[in-house]
Simulated scan of single mutants.
Amino acid sequence: MSDLHYIVRTPKIPVEKPSLLILLHGYGSNEQDLFSFAEELPDNLLIVSAQAPLSMGFGGYAWYTINFDDKNGKFSDLKEAKESIDKIAIFIDEIKKKYNTNSDKTFLLGFSQGAILSYSLSFFYPNKIQHVIVLSGYINTELLPEKISTDIKTDYYCSHGSVDQVLPVEWARNSKPFLDKLGFNNVYSEYNVGHGVAPQNFYSFKKWIEERL
């Protein structure tokens, strides 16, 4: 059992085996955050927004701890991060089974910390998800399996704010050459915003999702 708390938007039109979209929020947020997208996304999608397991108090949650010290600056608890990746993988299987979704059409959308884990999960669990939407995230090379499978068929939508003050855009720019080198299908775009999602960005990834349904 993954024991992750979550909220659901069932398809607005009856679908026998719906396509599934899982949402993973960022550091210090909660399952309600990205769920605001749900009403504007395709009616035939089953949308599930998961809440990270680590409480930060005041309604905020994290997938893993980010520590700060004088010598090393900011660094991530990689053990917690990997534990969350494994929990999310189990959670996806549980949701697929519970709602009898189309196993060939699973989308994973993450923002910031949720985006970093979305990348990593797709490498640790090849083809568990077919489509990854990465918003304001990057590939953390410390959160990769020893060998990335060449059989991965997942495709990636990646976007970032060009003036992101939380996660530097330079980190995100490394994603395309990384994925290209592996031969994975991906698109990368930037928007003139900080650490957030511009309206144009939303309509862009919405169209990307619609094209794959």
Rank of each mutant, 00 (worst) to 15 (best):
I85G: 01
S175E: 08
E40G: 11
K96P: 04
I7P: 01
S112T: 00
L121R: 02
F202H: 14
Q130W: 11
Y203I: 13
N186C: 11
V163C: 11
D33A: 00
N127I: 08
P168F: 03
E39L: 03
K147V: 15
E146G: 06
L179N: 10
H160K: 06
H25D: 07
K17W: 01
T141G: 03
F37Y: 09
K12S: 10
S162I: 12
V48E: 08
T101K: 09
Y27C: 06
G110T: 00
L41H: 02
S76G: 08
F202Q: 14
I88R: 00
K71Y: 13
T106C: 07
F37P: 00
E39G: 07
E31T: 05
W171C: 02
Y64D: 01
K207R: 15
A81P: 02
Y6N: 00
G161L: 02
S2E: 03
D104Y: 04
P53C: 14
N174F: 15
T141Y: 11
V48R: 06
P14A: 11
G110L: 01
D33W: 01
P42M: 07
Q200F: 15
K98R: 11
F75E: 07
L135H: 13
W208N: 15
P177N: 09
S136G: 14
K207A: 15
K17E: 09
S149V: 05
S159M: 04
S55L: 10
A38H: 01
G26A: 08
E146F: 03
K97Y: 11
E94F: 07
G59S: 06
P53Y: 09
S103P: 09
Y138D: 02
I209W: 05
L121N: 06
K97L: 15
D77T: 11
E146S: 07
I22T: 12
F202R: 13
